[in-house]
Nucleic acid binder design. Structure first.
Length: 437
DNA sequence: TCTGGGGTCCTAGGACCC
DNA sequence: TCTGGGGTCCTAGGACCC
């Protein structure tokens, strides 16, 4: 039996732990430039705020309805996530950390009443971290996900699902009538793996609820959609197609991208920002002892500014030798933007992606054919890069960087607006919570 | 004025192989 | 006149996830 445990409205809940006055109020957490809502409290959802909705569209609710907005504080969320994951891992032999706020647990071989175990786990996470969670159990990951959705909705929207499912829902133990009631009350779009596009197509074919989907002919579904949907339906029927991935393979790619606080119009500015992104993503690669085989860079104007001339372009540059050296990656990224940036455009976003990641130091001997060995600083863990990482860790990001990123590091003009960020209470001593006597 | 930042997997089509 | 067929690998793009 599988469980899916996740934190309700994760980012908002993290903020509430340190600012209890936010409890019960409509709260959103904003993306990097304070641009869009990336997390909403239930109260904010009830006001009609949508996921990823631009802040300027809902800003009027600040006055009209007391909506509160905070800048994202990922350092805090990441740390809270680790605490919560460590706690729930103790309840089952195998865990897959699926996202910052979600974890699959495999209860194979565990005896006892799972609903009771789920309630105990919820209570402990709440007591020890302050984070409210929902727990769903099912014989497949997809059913555990659905059960989790039911647990949350039964708590939030009494009437849609049986109140007994609130907070902890076990679809694997439910009798047939109970399960059917859940399937009939769930829309296909509520199912893990069925997004907006597929929902629309399924709806057009008369399939609206999970019950409809389970009654449909699976071969036809596979032919008209894909094996992905076929697997999803099999999982909903109780046939496991997906296992808990407790030892995930190393990442294949990683990215650093950002929308700009102000449009970038010149090559010189673009070189600065992209150098910064390249620096950051290479740092991340080194943390995972990975080296990149290729660098992918993209730049784009804002598709939302309809009156602007649009330009989106990307370029992938292969590396002769895999590298995790900031100088090498920045040089490639700069070369890419030099080929792409055109005058007269207002660029709104750019990103640097490292592709074809492999363990650092794993070099193929035949590449030395090119005689690049002595000029290949990315070949192993470089002392220079290690020193740079240490300095930046101690003195703050950007303390030491490559020259082309320097201007940005000093001025941070494209670093983005983040005017509403809360203290990083659990990871910075200087920002620790003060209790009044 | 102002619109997130990460990832994964699957498929189709082309290049290339024998 | 008539010009193979099957396999693999790679890439781009699309769909999904949070």
């Amino acid at each position: 039996m599988f469980a899916l445990v996740d934190v309700n409205n994760m980012y908002v809940s993290c903020e509430r732990v340190f600012r209890p006055s936010l409890i019960g109020k409509p709260v959103v957490v904003l993306s990097n430039n304070d641009g869009a809502c990336i997390a909403r409290s239930n109260e904010a959802k009830d006001l009609g705020v949508q996921m990823a909705q631009p802040w300027f569209e809902v800003r009027h609710l600040e006055r009209e309805a007391g909506l509160l907005a905070l800048s994202a504080n990922f350092e805090l969320y990441g740390d809270m996530s680790t605490r919560m994951m460590t706690l729930v891992a103790q309840y089952a032999p195998r865990q897959e950390v699926y996202s910052i706020d979600e974890s699959f647990l495999d209860f194979e071989g565990v005896s006892g009443d799972l609903v009771e175990i789920g309630r105990d786990m919820r209570a402990k996470v709440l007591l020890w971290t302050g984070l409210p969670t929902s727990v769903g159990f099912g014989p497949t990951k997809t059913l555990a996900k659905l059960a989790n959705h039911v647990a949350k909705m039964a708590d939030r929207r009494p009437g849609r699902y049986d109140a007994r499912h609130a907070q902890v829902c076990h679809l694997g133990a439910a009798d047939r009538a109970t399960r059917d009631a859940v399937f009939a009350a769930s829309e296909v779009g509520d199912v893990w793996g069925i997004g907006r596009r597929m929902s629309a197509r399924l709806n057009a074919g008369g399939i609206h609820t999970v019950q409809d989907l389970l009654r449909a002919d699976i071969a036809t579904l596979r032919a008209q959609f894909s094996v992905v949907l076929e697997k999803t339906v099999l999982e909903l029927r109780g046939t496991p197609c997906l296992d808990v991935d407790h030892a995930p393979a190393a990442q294949q790619q990683m990215m650093c991208s950002r929308s700009f606080g102000a449009p970038v119009t010149t090559l010189a500015e673009m070189v600065e920002v992209v150098s910064q992104f390249a620096t950051r993503v290479t740092e991340k690669a080194r943390q995972q002892q990975a080296a990149a085989g290729a660098v992918h860079v993209f730049i784009t104007t804002s598709p939302h500014r309809r009156h602007d001339r649009q330009h989106s372009q990307s370029l992938t540059l292969p590396l002769v030798r895999a590298s995790a050296d900031t100088r090498v990656i920045v040089a490639m990224a700069v070369r890419a933007v030099q080929q792409m940036v055109r005058p007269g455009f207002h660029y709104a976003k750019a990103g640097v992606m490292l592709l074809d990641l492999r363990p650092q130091g794993q070099q193929q001997a035949e590449l030395d054919l090119f005689g690049t060995a002595e000029a290949a600083p990315g070949a192993g863990p470089s002392r220079l890069m290690a020193a740079m990482d240490t300095l930046n860790q101690r003195f703050g990001r950007g303390a030491v960087t490559v020259a082309s990123a320097q201007h940005q590091a000093r001025h941070g003009q494209h670093a983005g607006r983040q005017q509403r960020r809360s203290p990083r209470s659990t990871t910075r001593l200087a920002e620790i919570v003060t209790a009044r006597a």
